[in-house]
Computed example of a mutant assay.
Amino acid sequence: MIQEMINGSIAVLTKPSAQTFEQHERDNLVWALIYAVIASVINGILSAITWPLQVGQIRAQLEAQNVPSDVIETTLAQQGNIINLVLSGIFSTIIGSLIIWGLIYLLGRAFGGTGSFGELAWGISLFSSPLSVAQTLASAIPLPLISGFISLALTLYGVYLVYLAIQSGMNLPARKALYIAIILAIIAIIFVCIAGTIIAAVSLALGGGFAP
């Protein structure tokens, strides 16, 4: 089954189209999750290996935010622990994948889609899993400009593939799939803004910014 998914990943990544997704479509939620978890384990291992290349930059960022030194050391130790990285990656991948796939499925049904949840999950996992590994490798590049450009390109390509996967997995025309992709992009932007605000507030609090 893994080989079949790898073949499907190669196909949809190199020849992206709704027809390609249809050719490699399966109704198998379990293996879609397994494929995503395998990618998360690989990401955890890669993150641990490349951690020494990033620790200096992250330390400088935390120090610039006036985060206490003991908090910095604790944070760096946790982020560089391979067991923590792998276990947290597996948990967050399972929960996150089900939430994201479920949201896309509900939107697809709202627009009249007839595909199954397993078909949609399978199609999305074929590209999201390898792209997540590519994102991890890109983040390890020590040159922020190049790393950011590659990450942005991978993100945009992923959005396009989601659009195609919705057509195939939910049996929807291109126009309706585009509407769903736009809604998802808006939700993602709102989520990132909220998460960024929370992180900034927490960093400020840790740095004593709320002290009288």
Rank of each mutant, 00 (worst) to 15 (best):
Q135C: 12
G56A: 13
G80R: 08
L46P: 05
T75N: 00
G102T: 12
L137R: 03
I124Y: 11
P144Q: 13
F149E: 06
G80M: 00
S88R: 08
D70K: 03
S132I: 08
G118V: 10
W122S: 08
G115S: 07
Y157R: 05
D70S: 11
I58P: 00
A138W: 09
V37R: 12
T136E: 13
S88P: 03
G158I: 05
I100D: 09
L98F: 05
S125P: 05
Q57N: 04
Q135E: 14
A77N: 06
V86M: 06
S125G: 12
I100G: 11
I124F: 15
I95D: 03
A140R: 12
V55H: 00
I45P: 00
V159Q: 01
T114S: 13
I94L: 13
L106N: 10
I99R: 02
V37H: 00
S147F: 12
A36K: 08
V162Y: 10
T136I: 13
S47D: 11
G118A: 15
P68M: 03
A153P: 02
G115W: 00
I95N: 07
L62D: 01
Q78S: 05
G169N: 10
A174N: 06
A174S: 10
L172G: 11
V37Y: 11
S116L: 05
I72T: 09
G112F: 14
V37G: 08
S47L: 14
A165I: 09
K176G: 07
Q135P: 04
I45V: 15
P130Q: 09
A110P: 04
F117A: 07
W101F: 15
I34V: 15
L46F: 15
N81C: 07
L46W: 00
G113M: 12
V67W: 01
S151Q: 12
A134T: 13
G108M: 06
A32V: 11
M170I: 07
A48D: 11
I141Q: 09
G112D: 13
G56Y: 04
S92D: 09
L87I: 14
A134K: 00
G89I: 01
I94D: 02
A140D: 02
I104M: 04
Q79Y: 01
L143N: 15
A39E: 03
V37P: 12
G56R: 02
K176I: 01
G102H: 04
A165V: 06
L152H: 08
E73M: 07
I82A: 13
F117I: 04
L126C: 06
A36F: 11
A140V: 12
N66G: 07
L161M: 09
Q79C: 01
A153K: 01
G102D: 03
S47K: 08
G56T: 02
P142V: 14
L145V: 14
G169F: 04
E73L: 05
A32W: 05
S129H: 09
L126D: 06
P52M: 12
P144C: 09
A165F: 10
G158M: 13
I83H: 03
S47A: 15
S147Y: 15
I82M: 10
A121Q: 13
N84T: 00
L87N: 00
V162W: 07
V86G: 01
Q79G: 03
L53W: 13
I124M: 11
G89V: 02
L98E: 04
V162H: 07
G80A: 06
I146T: 14
Q78P: 02
K176W: 04
L46I: 11
I49V: 15
L120P: 14
G158P: 03
G113N: 12
G123F: 01
T136V: 08
I141D: 07
S168V: 13
L143I: 15
I124T: 04
